[in-house]
Design a protein around this nucleic acid. Structure first.
Length: 159
DNA sequence: GCCAACGTTGGC
DNA sequence: GCCAACGTTGGC
């Protein structure tokens, strides 16, 4: 089965692509998603081997900064069980977890990130969820054509 | 820092 | 079930 494509947002102040690059095995769990629509994707849709656009949000220059691959499919977000975690949710129980996460592994950090404004310049990317007004979904599906286009834009900038 | 848009909460 | 109030996201 063909892999699917996703975009995951992170605030670089909290967790950046350099953090992922420096992580053990360049792999991390993607904890802390507390939105039901995104949860459903993490729990049900995102599969091992799927490809991910790694996006920096709420920063000086919002951009797709690299690529990652799903290493481990949806499993309970254990941070929700830890009262000391900022992601603690008393309503989520280990025997019936509310929140889920996946593990992702760095595939490539772009030499030249593809900025939000560059994405907006592309007619072929007009339908991306990321670019829709008011869209704030932190884990979102991306079409293969969109994914490939963005990879191509990043490669082009390296020339 | 501002503020529009969105999601959640909770009173009724 | 409605909807106002509130908290959060995230571009600018």
């Amino acid at each position: 089965m063909a892999c699917n494509h996703w975009l995951m947002k992170t605030e670089p102040n909290t967790y950046s692509i350099d953090d992922l690059s420096n992580a053990k095995k360049q792999t991390t769990c993607w904890e802390g998603v507390r939105n039901y629509q995104a949860r459903n994707l993490l729990r049900d849709e995102i599969k091992k081997g799927d490809r991910v656009l790694f996006y920096h949000s709420a920063c000086k220059e919002p951009a797709v900064v690299g690529l990652a691959i799903v290493e481990k499919e949806g499993y309970p977000d254990t941070f929700a069980f830890d009262p000391k975690s900022k992601y603690y949710d008393e309503k989520s129980k280990p025997d019936q977890p509310t929140w889920f996460m996946v593990d992702i592994k760095l595939e490539k950090k772009f030499d030249h990130p593809v900025t939000l404004s560059e994405l907006r310049d592309q007619a072929s990317l007009k339908e991306m969820i990321l670019l829709q007004k008011g869209s704030r979904l932190s884990v979102q599906p991306v079409k293969k054509t969109e994914f490939d286009k963005i990879v191509k834009l990043a490669a082009k900038k390296s020339n």
